[in-house]
């Protein structure tokens, strides 16, 4: 005896028409169909919106860290200068500041950053690829006129800590970067136009060398 012996034979499937099961199957009334379609539209648009917002920073190459990644690779910070028309390559740069930048890739090893405090207020900050500042220090923290820290990855930090002798970790400030690549920015305030050469010399003197 067949279990489905009383059942009618299945109708032929329409060949050219998409007949989805489940939520894509439209309800009967016009209003319900409209609401159903609207919900699907809003859900898909929301997913596209969120993906766009999340993916643009990941693949954009115009953020400051990507643009200036190659700056100061010789160990000296590179001064950011305006172009011939007077526009700074940094879109919102304060015209009353002097800025110099070092790019880094921790794949090449930890980075030692050092800068001398001067007469102009000075700050150093570390910016990441895709935006975000994870460390900043001003010259108020300078010791004997020197601002110095080491940028390293989590692995490099642990490796360094493992081979530290007694007291080594207290002799240097270690900053663990959440990303391999980024830039270190030295920014000095130009109080008067006549102070610009001094402020530019101050930021350009930032050294970014191999921390070994």
């Amino acid at each position: 005896m067949s279990l489905a012996s009383d059942q009618a034979p299945a109708p032929e499937r329409a060949p050219a028409r998409f007949r989805p099961k489940g939520p894509l199957r439209l309800p009967r009334s016009r209003l319900a169909r409209l609401v159903h379609g609207g919900l699907v539209f809003v859900t898909l648009a929301g997913i596209a919106h969120i993906l766009t917002v999340l993916l643009v920073p990941r693949y954009a190459m115009m953020d400051a860290a990507s643009v200036f990644l190659g700056a100061g690779l010789d160990g000296r910070a590179e001064l950011v200068k305006p172009d011939a028309a007077g526009d700074s390559p940094v879109i919102d740069a304060d015209p009353r500041t002097a800025i110099a930048i070092c790019g880094f890739d921790l794949g090449d090893g930890p980075l030692r950053v050092s800068a001398r405090a001067g007469s102009a207020p000075l700050a150093l900050s570390v910016h990441l690829r895709g935006g975000g500042v994870f460390y900043a220090v001003t010259d108020k923290a300078a010791q004997r006129g020197l601002l110095e820290f080491v940028v390293l990855s989590r692995e490099q930090f642990e490796e360094r800590a493992a081979r530290d002798d007694e007291g080594d970790s207290q002799r240097e400030l270690r900053v663990v970067s959440p990303q391999r690549q980024g830039i270190v920015v030295a920014r000095a305030l130009v109080r008067q136009p006549s102070d610009r050469p001094g402020a530019e010399a101050l930021v350009s003197a930032m050294a970014c060398g191999d921390a070994g």
Binding site: M62, V90, I99, S125, G131
Partner: peptide, 28 residues
């Protein structure tokens, strides 16, 4: 928040589309 590590996703998009150097939280 633009000058911190916890930038919101829209702030991150703004920073990613052109070279901005926002003041860090401890900087100004």
């Amino acid at each position: 928040r633009l000058g911190g590590a916890d930038v919101d996703p829209y702030g991150r998009v703004l920073l990613a589309r052109a070279p901005h150097l926002p003041l860090a939280a401890g900087e100004g």
